[in-house]
């Protein structure tokens, strides 16, 4: 096996193949119309409609951001699942949507997503390209610009889903000060506590990846989430076995599971 895979990546590759098989099984079941386990209610995603509705009633805009993630980050893809839904609702309710970006590449994708959503809602004329704003590649340059937009435009809803760094708390606190309903979500464990205390709803870790499946209710996408849960059970089992081997059965330097995982 090591003749094919780079040393240190054999288990990674095998784990990926195993996950592929699990996802394929669940997708096949979903396509065949077989029963797929339901996913739990996610309060943060349920609140998206409420947030856009509130902004519409107040006549104030909705602000969305994906944080500092780049175009190739998985978190940014999770954000796009949310953005399409929010943009569609904004188009239907005639609510202004402001999207701010720190990455010019993400900005171009965001523009297309929002434009397409307005088109699907039957209101292509309502799309304003000036509301999809590239602000600055600098972390705090971007933060300052968003704070300025919050102070001037006073959004009634602030949706922050993606990867965030130190700017997370500043954005969330200023959003709270202008009275916006705030829905946040990130996989950054360092920023999650800030979001939890400053926002009304927080999607914790993997919940952001469930967004497009949850919103679309597409059984094929839901099936992939179930496969993820199966895999999580496998990882928990591996952690338990590793703990037992390390602490009960043998000395730490002869932990065969740890050695296998390093291959």
């Amino acid at each position: 096996m090591n003749a094919f895979f780079v040393k240190g990546y054999t288990v990674d590759a095998l784990a990926m193949i195993l996950l592929c098989i699990a996802v394929w099984v669940l997708i096949t079941r979903a396509r065949a119309g077989m029963k797929i386990p339901a996913i739990n209610k996610i309060a943060g995603l349920e609140a998206l409609d409420e947030a856009v509705g509130r902004a519409t009633e107040m006549g104030r805009p909705v602000h969305t951001t994906h944080g500092l993630g780049g175009v190739s980050d998985a978190e940014t893809f999770a954000f796009w699942g949310v953005l399409g839904h929010v943009a569609n609702m904004c188009a239907k309710y005639d609510c202004r949507l402001i999207n701010t970006c720190r990455s010019y590449l993400v900005m171009t994708v965001n523009t297309e997503i929002i434009k397409q959503s307005y088109l699907e809602a039957g209101r292509p004329d309502a799309f304003n390209p000036d509301d999809v704003r590239y602000l600055s590649p600098s972390q705090f340059g971007y933060t300052t610009a968003v704070v300025g937009i919050f102070a001037r435009e006073k959004p009634a809803a602030n949706i922050m889903v993606g990867y965030f760094y130190a700017e997370a708390l500043t954005l969330a606190e200023v959003g709270s000060q202008v009275g916006a309903v705030q829905i946040s979500g990130t996989t950054s464990t360092a920023q999650l506590p800030f979001f939890v205390v400053a926002c009304d709803y927080t999607l914790i870790g993997e919940e952001i990846y469930a967004a497009s499946a949850y919103i679309s209710k597409n059984p094929v996408l839901v099936g992939s989430l179930v496969a993820e849960d199966w895999y999580k059970i496998l990882i928990i089992a591996a952690v338990l076995v590793g703990t037992v081997i390390a602490n009960v059965i043998g000395p730490k330097d002869k932990n065969w599971l740890a050695e296998f995982l390093k291959k």
Partner: peptide, 29 residues
């Protein structure tokens, strides 16, 4: 761990063309 797995599965969905949110609109996904 949950986040890594979620990212992993999202990447797989994108590779297989199941996840299409980045292509725009509600029909994307």
């Amino acid at each position: 761990i949950g986040a890594y797995l979620g990212g992993f599965v999202t990447a797989l969905r994108i590779l297989l063309g199941i996840e299409r949110a980045h292509l725009g609109g509600m029909g994307g996904s």
